[in-house]
């Protein structure tokens, strides 16, 4: 008798939350797997220009970045405001690019070296002189597949 009574007196039964940790874990693993940690701290200000005819960069592990722009505000007292090249975590000159390319190649599977792309992330206010120097050095290093990092836009303005 008492068994039946108990059921009725309960009111609304609590929602079973036993599966909640499982759901959260599932989401957690998804984000853990998809996360790509930013591997460099930017020392230069880069606002990439906009373009309409952009391609997506596939295979991020095969992409190496070359940053060009003026030093960030904290570093301007030390390095001035002239445009600079950043490779990995440090400022560099155009002369260092060949060594950088070689270094990147060593870290890549030899079979995939021809697929490597060097992405130039240059600030829109940067002058072409420094960008051209970088391009010439890339040519010398035989890194011919390059990408100008741009944002996608619908229309180009004059």
């Amino acid at each position: 008798m008492s068994k039946f009574k108990k059921k009725k007196s309960g009111g609304i039964p609590a929602v079973n939350t036993a599966a909640l940790p499982d759901i959260v874990f599932m989401l957690l693993f998804f984000f853990m797997v998809t996360t790509v940690m930013r591997e460099v701290t930017l020392k230069v200000k880069v606002v990439t220009p906009q373009a309409t005819e952009v391609n997506k960069l596939e295979r991020k592990s095969l992409v190496s970045y070359i940053y060009i722009g003026e030093p960030t505000e904290q570093l301007q007292s030390q390095f001035g405001t002239a445009d600079r090249i950043q490779l990995n975590d440090a400022f560099a000159t155009a002369k260092d690019i060949i060594a950088f390319v070689e270094g990147e190649r060593e870290q890549t599977d030899p079979a995939e070296v021809p697929l490597m792309t060097f992405s130039i992330k240059a600030d829109q206010k940067a002058e072409m002189g420094i960008v051209t120097d970088v391009k010439q050095e890339l040519r010398k290093a035989n890194a011919l597949k390059i990408n100008y990092s741009t944002k996608k836009t619908d229309k180009i303005v004059d």
């Binding site: 940790p21 957690l28 996360t35 373009a51 005819e53 597949k145 990408n147 990092s149």
Partner: peptide, 27 residues
């Protein structure tokens, strides 16, 4: 788990890199 989840949610950058792909002439 929630704490970790929020950490990864915040640090994740879902930006797809886009750009103009070009081929340089050989040296």
């Amino acid at each position: 788990a929630f704490l970790l989840l929020i950490f990864f949610l915040v640090t994740t950058t879902m930006d797809v890199d886009t750009g103009l792909t070009r081929k340089l002439p050989p040296p």
